[in-house]
Nucleic acid binder design. Structure first.
Length: 549
RNA sequence: GGCCUGUUGGUGAAGUGGUUAACACGUAUGCCUCUCAAGCAUAUAUGCACGGGUUCAAGUCCCGUACAGGCUACCA
């Protein structure tokens, strides 16, 4: 029996040979330096922040080199897959403007290197597994999980290296006859690689991010085809990334230790080894120690957390981009007129240690980002957020669209805009008093002046003798000064600070009375602009209300 | 246990042998025609985990120690 025939018995019924597959998926015709990268998730549902970082880097690298970025679904673990998982992932990423050139889409596969779902590629994996068997580089293994577990226990007890290798690889030297006999007896088997590595030999590997690293060769006979006929991650990775002609495998650091296995697989299969970039994980502080951010333990790992908070997606991307390349911020500062798409991401500038996830920094970036937006854009974002998280407020925003936009425009579209909005879950809290329908103060936050008579005097004097809706800002302020002085308060802060004892108080105290009367709050944006928006009628109404309170 | 990797201020970091260790966040104080938010100014590492070594010169190269992280599945 030839080895080809033998391979055919072990893995029967495959449509094409490996040579045919090689021809079906030829080398891509791209310009020099173009990166072909991919996002290859298991369809387990939501995208978390670390995965978003990795995906973004993949995406951007392909984009900035005029390469190809594709989506492949790694569903070889049937237990973990969930039904709608992949659509959710596609939707989530679309929100962040991450789009795929090729691969799985909601409408099916796009591109000529598919299928892009691993469970549909069984024939392909088998064809290449057969190649290995035919070349005596892979063999069937009849060991049960029980036996493997026992061996591992012995290894652990003796302090030996764990794994299926060397003398522990019991099925490695089974003859064809022995194998055939076991098969005839109905014994189940999997396919393992016949490793040609020597653990005592080292080889140098160059990672795009981590640089040169020495690894021992892998001598483990890793599983390549599982008992359900599907490939393991390792094998699927080699076959898929070769056939899909991936140039750069950009993935999480948890894969770094698998490099010896992966490079060995590529070489034994006769494939060119792709370039690798391993991204260090996002860390979080937990009880004084840092650990990788976790989907299960950390709410901030889920992007839904930020949606709920109302942090704009674009701000999240800006944060992740600074995590990827910390010079990004400086670049933005120096290239204010350019689109962030023009920034070139560099592997060499990526951190090799784990980056601490910095929530304060994210908030700061979000705040700065929002401050540069136009009022109408803020209105749209606020409304979008309110629609899902604050229906009552969404109705108000919709009902008073123009007015709301003006409210958002207070101290906004100018050289040094307000930076008080960091996320939109706070919006109602920050603006409720601007809406008559919401203005039902429970208390007034009077400050230095809280004597009822004095408050009354100031408010009445202001409304009767000074207030005029048509005043411009300077006139408004001059009047405030004048009134303060007429009532015994300092109109000029410098004069007040020089001789505080000469006055009952100062213009700030007087303004505060008006501010609190109109809004009930002691901290608000510019009083003049607020009054402009409220209008005469409401101002009078509110002052009356404050006097009665 | 084994194999890898990392360790610069409260935080993210720049730094690829040679001036006073960038920049950003945070914090503190001060300035400002009103409170906040800003803006501006100033401060914020007895010094690059620790101990040795190479060198005229080290955060930057070498060795050891400690600590942290990842991997060590018929999971990805």
């Amino acid at each position: 029996m030839t080895r080809e025939e033998y391979a055919n018995i072990l893995l029967p019924g495959v449509k094409h040979t490996w040579q045919e597959y090689e021809e079906m998926y030829p080398e891509r015709n791209l310009k020099e330096g173009a990166i072909v990268s991919r996002y290859a998730p298991s369809p387990t549902g939501f995208v978390h922040i670390g995965a978003l970082l990795t995906t973004f880097i993949n995406y951007k690298m392909a984009r900035q080199t005029d390469g190809v970025f594709y989506l492949r679904v790694e569903d070889t673990d049937q237990k973990r897959s969930i039904d709608d998982g992949i659509n959710r992932i596609i939707e989530d990423l679309a929100k962040f403007d991450i789009k795929f050139d090729e691969g799985v889409t909601k409408a099916g596969d796009k591109g000529s290197y598919g299928p892009y779902t691993q469970s549909e590629r069984k024939d392909i994996y088998w064809a290449f597994a057969k190649k290995l068997i035919a070349e005596d580089k892979a063999y069937p293994c009849f060991c049960t999980e029980e036996e493997n577990k026992n061996d591992r226990a012995v290894q652990e007890k003796n302090g030996e290296r764990l794994g299926y290798y060397g003398k522990w690889a019991k099925c490695r030297n089974l003859s064809m006859e022995e194998v055939l006999e076991k098969i005839n007896n109905g014994e189940k088997y999997i396919i393992r690689l016949k490793s040609n590595g020597d653990f005592n030999k080292k080889f140098t590997f160059k990672d795009c991010i981590k640089g040169k690293v020495e690894f021992p060769e892998s001598d483990e006979d890793i599983v390549i085809i599982k008992s359900d006929g599907l490939p393991t991650y390792h094998f699927a990775h080699a076959v898929d990334d070769h056939l899909m002609r991936t140039t750069h495998v950009i993935r999480g650091e948890e894969w770094f230790s698998s490099i010896p296995k992966h490079t060995q697989l590529f070489v034994m299969l006769g494939f060119k080894v792709p370039k690798y970039a391993h991204i260090s994980p996002l860390m979080i502080e937990d009880n004084g120690t840092r650990r990788k951010i976790s989907k299960r333990k950390d709410p901030e790992a889920a992007i839904s957390y930020y949606h709920e908070k109302g942090i704009p997606n674009k701000a999240i991307m800006l944060y992740l981009e600074t995590v990827a390349n910390s010079n990004f911020e400086m670049w933005m500062e120096q290239n204010k007129d350019k689109s962030t798409d023009e920034f070139i991401l560099d592997f060499k500038k990526m951190s090799t240690g784990g980056t601490m996830f910095d929530y304060d920094k994210l908030i700061n970036i979000s705040k700065n980002y929002i401050s540069r937006l136009r009022a109408s854009e803020i209105y749209d974002l606020a409304l979008e957020h309110a629609k899902t998280y604050n229906e009552k407020f969404a109705k108000i925003l919709e009902k008073y669209k123009d007015y709301s936009t003006k409210v958002f425009n207070i101290e906004r579209e100018q050289k040094k805009p307000r930076k008080d909005i960091a996320y939109f879950s706070d919006t109602e809290n920050q603006t409720w008093y601007m809406y008559e329908e919401l203005f039902t103060p429970t208390s007034y936050e009077w400050q230095n002046i809280n004597d009822k008579k004095e408050i009354e005097l100031i408010l009445n004097t202001y409304v009767n003798d000074y207030y005029n809706i048509n005043d411009d800002k300077q006139t408004w302020f001059d009047k405030m000064k004048k009134m303060s002085e007429s009532l015994g308060y300092a109109g000029d802060m410098k004069a007040y600070k020089a001789n505080p004892d000469n006055y009952k108080g100062n213009i700030a105290d007087v303004s505060m009375v008006i501010r609190v009367a109109l809004t009930s709050k002691s901290m608000t944006p510019d009083l003049y602009e607020i009054m402009k928006l409220l209008g005469t009628e409401n101002i009078q109404k509110r002052i009356k209300k404050a006097l009665q309170a």
